[in-house]
């Protein structure tokens, strides 16, 4: 008998990069987060080969979810090909053997910064959102232990107060991205800096969403079929960005969230923000056998 036969062969790292105890802790917190939708769970954020603030929170959740048969899609502001998205995606496949994809309909795990894809997610898919600042009460309560008590008391009057004052001052709600939303009628969460356009996609969705902030060491979840209601006054309806009528200058699709591209002549062109939806549309038009999944918005409107 040799020593070598008693031990496992040398490996550069654990499966999925994080060691077993880190994953166990994260899984516990993820289960807790599912059990109390929208409630922030503290966790011990680990070192990953990426600087905090670049999606380390999302990355840790994704690493914990991965298995060899996973299919991962990573987007940054809707794009699969940005440097950050591409390097996270290749890191994920390298440490887990998971398959990489750009196609929303093929992915089993989607990690995203600031957008939710336009194609509807299904019950067998998990969305992981990277969150810079998980605390919706931060603008009204700088002391985080007081903020935690306010969550415990469901004391959200001051969040409404901010909206009230925006309407008083500007005639409308000015809150753009990261619109505070009530989850399951109990906890207010920051849905990460997704645009207002994307918030309704979380409401009663089929898929599970995790939101994780690595620097702030907090994660929370929206389980499938959970109410996610943006804070709105009964007489001032929630409004998504005015993008329904815009057309993508490259793919020709319209009725989706667009990126504004400033032109040399001072005007603006628009490009669909979910870049792979644009690619699929173009290839379909060219005659390729491409399947575009059902989208949340239809003709620029979200069916109720």
């Amino acid at each position: 008998m040799t020593l070598a036969s008693l031990t496992k062969p040398w490996e550069a790292m654990s499966y999925g990069f994080l060691d077993a105890s880190a994953k166990r802790e994260l899984r516990r917190k993820m289960l807790k987060a599912i059990a109390v939708p929208g409630c922030q769970m503290p966790y011990a954020s680990r070192e990953v080969p990426m600087a905090r603030g670049w999606g380390t929170g999302g990355l840790q959740v994704t690493l914990t979810l991965l298995k060899p048969s996973s299919v991962v899609k990573v987007i940054d502001q809707g794009a699969d090909d940005s440097v950050n998205a591409a390097s996270i995606r290749s890191f994920l496949s390298k440490v887990s053997g998971a398959t990489e994809t750009w196609d929303t309909t093929e992915a089993t795990i989607l990690q995203s910064r600031h957008r939710i894809p336009e194609e509807r997610l299904r019950a067998d898919q998990v969305l992981v959102l990277q969150v810079p600042n998980p605390e919706p009460l931060r603008p009204v309560e700088p002391n985080m232990s007081v903020a935690r008590q306010m969550h415990a008391d469901a004391d959200y009057g001051r969040l409404w107060l901010i909206l009230y004052e925006q309407i008083v001052r500007s005639g409308r709600v000015m809150q753009g991205a990261a619109y505070p939303s009530l989850v399951n009628g109990r906890h207010v969460m920051t849905p990460s800096p997704i645009p207002r356009w994307d918030v309704p996609k979380l409401h009663m969705a089929q898929h599970l969403t995790f939101l994780s902030a690595g620097r702030e060491k907090r994660l929370y979840a929206v389980p499938p079929f959970t109410r996610v209601e943006p804070l709105v006054f009964s007489d001032v309806p929630y409004q998504v960005e005015d993008h329904a009528a815009l057309t993508c200058h490259r793919s020709g699709v319209s009725g989706y969230f667009m990126n504004e591209i400033p032109q040399d002549d001072g005007s603006s062109a628009f490009e669909v923000s979910d870049s792979h939806l644009g690619i699929k549309t173009i290839r379909q038009a060219e005659g390729a056998a491409i399947r575009i999944g059902p989208t949340w918005y239809e003709n620029g409107k979200m069916p109720q």
């Binding site: 009230y164 008083v168 009964s234 007489d235």
Partner: peptide, 27 residues
Amino acid sequence: LLMQHTSSGNVAERLLIAGERSFAALR
């Protein structure tokens, strides 16, 4: 008082805690 919020907002917060959700009614 919340010194950095508006005076009317300070009053409105009370109403918000009690569950008033109409902007016009708050105002």
